[in-house]
Design a binder for these strands. Sequence first.
DNA 1: TAGAATACGTCAGTCATATTGACATATTTT
DNA 2: AAAATATGTCAATATGACTGACGTATTCTA
Lengths: 187, 187
Amino acid sequence: MMDAPATNQPHPLAQDETTAAAPGGREDIVSLMELLFFAYRDFISEPDAMLAELGFGRAHHRILHFVGRHPGLRVSQLLAILRITKQSLGRVLRELVDRGYVQQTEGATDRRQRLLHLTPAGRELLERLEAPQIQRVSAALEQAGPGSRAAFRQVLLALVDENERRRVAALCGLSVDDHRQEGDDAK
Amino acid sequence: MMDAPATNQPHPLAQDETTAAAPGGREDIVSLMELLFFAYRDFISEPDAMLAELGFGRAHHRILHFVGRHPGLRVSQLLAILRITKQSLGRVLRELVDRGYVQQTEGATDRRQRLLHLTPAGRELLERLEAPQIQRVSAALEQAGPGSRAAFRQVLLALVDENERRRVAALCGLSVDDHRQEGDDAK
DNA sequence: TAGAATACGTCAGTCATATTGACATATTTT
DNA sequence: AAAATATGTCAATATGACTGACGTATTCTA
């Protein structure tokens, strides 16, 4: 059920001295890459455990998250954000709709569109899923001291593909009021 | 093949004003969480594409990485690091061994152990896989300015489960010379 | 207004990675 | 000699991704 069977054993390792991190050097960067792996894994672990109890997976969480943050999201936009195929999204979204966490409404001006919203149950589930993550990130920033938040944000944003960076910044930073549409049916 | 079918379309979204980030507030944290998702996804994308061409997946990369960094690693240690089951590791590791990227040698003092090493081909593949990631992280740190490296590292480490933090720090930070062993066969 | 394009859904098949459970084998420890 | 350990393996199952093909409702456009 849990992501981690091993909860309390140490997994100790030798590291030869040539691997020691020279500040700014290659090994230092590789250390950060490893750390990113571990941080992401633990960051994900709590919602994963809750989702498993409901018979859901990470994919359900991602949908709940983005629909929660962008009410009225269209299916095509969600596909573009998640970068998955229509077919992959299909099943997961259907489960969320069938079980009453997500609601689809016809577009007002374009009746082909299925605008996505969370139901009250969906909002509640999302809140439960993300509470531990919000707690974890808040605590980490506090521990790392003032100014770490800005630096962390900057590095993360700079890690994003350059040609995606503006969009991502708009998506999870400043408001960009815009509802344009684009091509579909990846081929 | 690629992780991303959509390469050049914008995926624009409206964000209502109540969602705007108040510095240090809840929405600000949620923004960072989203950013972590996008950053991790792009960070992973290049090796993923290369691996797909070889018929490998992310799991193969993870094994190559940890074996490369910790030559002589035992299978049980790798299981503890990756937190997967023996059975999951089994197939992936076998593929790497069969195709000549990883080599197993008998333990000198305990002949039950299969100590893991990269072959020259394994080292070469790992280098190819991680070159773009090293480049990406280096560039991001440079863009984010001096001091960002330390802050980034601190936040990532603080994101790791508290009871894991020491081990992880030892694993990907300072040298901890130690080859102890522990229980196995998660149950 | 007829046909093209768009938004969405769905059926069918495949793949990679993970899971649990059970068991086999070699080796070391007690 | 028996128990514990380190590893490997068979079988069945689940999730989440993929490609390809097709269907249907709706809107746009020539």
